[in-house]
Each structure stands twice: as C-alpha cells, then as structure tokens.
Design a binder for these strands. Structure first.
Lengths: 136, 136
DNA sequence: CTTATATCTGAGCATATATTCAGATATACT
DNA sequence: AGTATATCTGAATATATGCTCAGATATAAG
C-alpha cells in the first residue's frame, strides 16, 4: 500500500506547510507541498516553455511534418513540395511562411524559384524521434 | 550562380518528363520531377505521419509541456500538478486525459489520489531537444 | 512592353482546441 | 449511514488554425 514514492514524500513535510517560494501564485490545494516545490523549482521559465511549445507546434502538424520530411534529403522548391505532398502551392507557401518565421527552414531564391531547406539538425532528430515513437 | 544542388538536378531530367510512379496523384505543376519522385518515395506512410503529428501535438502545448516537464523528476497527483503549473484541477484533468489517451503518461491510483508519470523515455528526449533548440 | 510563371499574401470559412463551469463518480473518514 | 475530498466528465464558449480563393508581386522570356 505504501509505495516508495509515497514514503519519500511522507517524511519530507510533517510540518504545517514549509511555505515554498511564491506560495501566492498557487491558489489551489496541494497534497504534497514539497514535491510541488521541487517540481516548480526545476520547471523551465515562462517564456522558455512558450517558445519550446511554439517550436514543437510547428512540427506537430501533418502537412508541415510531411514538408519537413521531404526536405530531409535535399532542398526543394515550392511547387515541387506541393507535388510531393499533394497540396495546393498556396497552402504550401502559407505553411512555409510559418516554418520560416519559426526558424525551422531557410530559403534561397534563384530567379523566380525559391528553394527551401532545413535550417537546423534538431528538426531531423525530432522527426526521427517522433516517427520511432509511433512504430513501437 | 549554379549551385551543386542545381547541377545535380539539371542532368537528371533532360527528357520530356520521366513519368514517376503514381503520376496521377499529383495534379499540380512541378519543376524537378526526379527530386519530387525521390522525396515522395522516402516520405513516411499516410497513417505514420498522422500518428507522429498527433503525438507531437500532445507535447506542443504550453500547458501539457509544463505538465510533462514537472513529471520528469517524479510522479505527481492531479492537484499537485495543478499547483505546480497554476491551473485549475479540472483543466489539468482534461489535459491528462489527452496525454493518457496518447500513451504519453500512465497513472496509478492510490485511494482517491491518482499519481501520473511519464510512460516513455522518448518524451524526455523530445522535451530536452525542444528546450535546447530554443536556447540557441 | 507584354505575357507567362513562381511565389507570396490577405480575407473568409470551417474545424479544432483549451479553458471554465457545473455536476457526476469514487473513495476515505466519522 | 453521511460528509468530505480527489478526480473525472460533458456542455458551452472563446480562440486558434489550416485551407481555399482571389489577387498582388517579382522575375524570365517573347
């Protein structure tokens, strides 16, 4: 009945409530104040989480994930990308705009043609990781 | 002016159009048919992309990212999680439901209290990767 | 200069999603 | 039994998002 985790917590807060830093931020009840304090202490900062989530959101869309997968091998222009994933060039351009703004891809213009490529190796790793996760 | 990538493509399709496999799927114009064919050949399958995107979407939300970050150290119950990220317990429960359905977290019930934990190491890697990407 | 093409952009619509609110369920305590 | 608490759930609302459509921009070619 008493798990290791529970024992660990049990002898850490016998006092009324050790008053964590910034107790005013939390208005809801808590069962294990010390675990809450520890978790909150190591939680990434406000803006950091927001930025990371925004970055992940860019990759977390089927269309964009397909675009990025296609770009893993070589750079491609807009209409080629549209052909690869079977979507309108307008839609692709819209998505590429988001990816550009999020610094996930970069592009190079050659006359009328814009060639897009992955900007960061993190993206490749992230995609691989997600695809592996699915397979299991 | 002539990049390596362009030369690579230039001498690969001097013919009218080599007619890739499944040319019917693509109704839009394409400039480099051979690059399109190559990219399409290595593109992950339909359902695979959909699943991977769905998984990523679960992590790509500020609230859920905070929840998962908090769970990296130790398992936590719902109201503790609510206290950590400063959100209503109802909202947290809703999000945990999604994470549970997506097999990102698992939970263990001890009396009335439900302790949640990360289910997969992939999540930790993914979070670290995303947070690193932001820092640079 | 005029035409064609590759890409970009803004508006509009349809869908998805995150939170709140109210209430249901389940377990512990007396 | 009854009360209190921890969690869950459904409905509703507000916001975000992806695509299409129409048109703008820019460059190449005639």
């Amino acid at each position: 009945m008493t798990s290791p985790a529970e024992l660990e917590r049990a002898n850490a807060a016998p006092r009324p409530v050790p008053e964590n830093e910034r107790a005013d931020v939390c208005e809801v009840s808590m069962i294990h104040p010390e675990a809450v304090g520890a978790a909150r202490a190591t939680l990434p900062g406000e803006g950091r989480v927001e930025q990371a989530a925004a970055f992940l959101k860019l990759v977390a869309d089927p269309t964009r994930l397909r675009l990025l997968s296609a770009l893993q091998h070589s750079e491609l222009c807009v209409c080629d990308l549209a052909a690869v994933i079977g979507l309108s060039e307008s839609a692709v351009s819209h998505q590429l705009r988001l990816l550009r703004a999020g610094r996930v891809v970069s592009y190079r213009k050659e006359g009328r043609v814009a060639y897009y490529r992955l900007l960061d190796g993190h993206v490749t790793v992230l995609i691989q990781n997600a695809l592996e996760h699915v397979c299991e």
